[in-house]
Simulated assay, not measured.
Amino acid sequence: MEITEIINKTNAFLIEEFEVAPGSITPEADLKSTLGLDSLDYIDLVVAIEANFGFKVKPEDFQGIASFQDFYNYVIERLKQKELV
C-alpha cells in the first residue's frame, strides 16, 4: 500500500468515526484535540485501526503519537512490519 493511500484511508475512517471536518486533519494538527479524544475514544481508535489495517495495537503505542503525522508514521511503520512477517 502506498503512503498516500494509507493517509487517505486513515483520514477517511477518522472523519467518519470521529465526525470531524476534513480540513481540520492536517499532518501537524494535534491528534487528541482535533479528534476530541478521551480515554474511551482511544478504544474506538484502536478498533478502527485494527479493522482497517489488520494489525493489533497496544495502548503504549500511543505514547509517542501527538500529531496526525506521528499517527501516519505509526501506521506506515506497523504495515511495513506486517509485510515482513
Rank of each mutant, 00 (worst) to 15 (best):
M1A: 11
M1R: 03
E2F: 00
E2V: 00
I3H: 01
I3Q: 03
I3Y: 04
T4A: 03
T4N: 02
E5W: 00
E5Q: 05
I7P: 01
I7H: 02
N8C: 00
K9G: 00
T10E: 03
T10R: 00
A12G: 00
A12V: 00
A12Y: 01
A12I: 00
F13I: 12
L14Q: 05
L14I: 04
L14P: 07
L14G: 02
L14V: 02
I15G: 01
I15H: 03
E17P: 01
E17L: 07
F18H: 03
F18I: 06
E19Y: 01
V20K: 05
V20F: 04
V20N: 05
V20A: 09
A21M: 03
A21N: 13
P22K: 07
P22C: 04
G23P: 08
S24V: 04
S24D: 09
T26G: 08
T26Q: 10
T26E: 11
T26I: 06
P27M: 04
P27E: 11
P27H: 09
P27D: 12
E28G: 09
L31K: 12
L31F: 14
L31H: 11
K32D: 10
G36I: 00
L37G: 01
L37V: 15
D38M: 07
S39Y: 07
L40S: 14
D41K: 09
I43V: 15
I43W: 02
D44H: 06
D44Q: 14
D44Y: 11
V46K: 10
V46H: 02
V47K: 07
I49A: 06
I49M: 09
E50Y: 05
A51C: 06
A51H: 04
A51F: 01
F55M: 07
K56Q: 06
K56N: 08
V57I: 13
V57H: 00
P59L: 12
P59M: 10
E60V: 15
D61Y: 15
D61G: 13
D61M: 04
D61N: 14
F62W: 15
Q63L: 15
G64Q: 15
I65H: 04
I65R: 13
F68I: 11
D70Y: 03
D70M: 09
F71G: 06
Y72C: 14
Y72S: 05
N73C: 10
N73I: 06
Y74L: 08
Y74K: 10
I76Y: 13
E77V: 08
E77G: 14
L79V: 14
L79S: 13
K80W: 05
K80L: 13
K82M: 12
E83C: 11
E83N: 14
L84S: 11
V85N: 15
V85A: 04
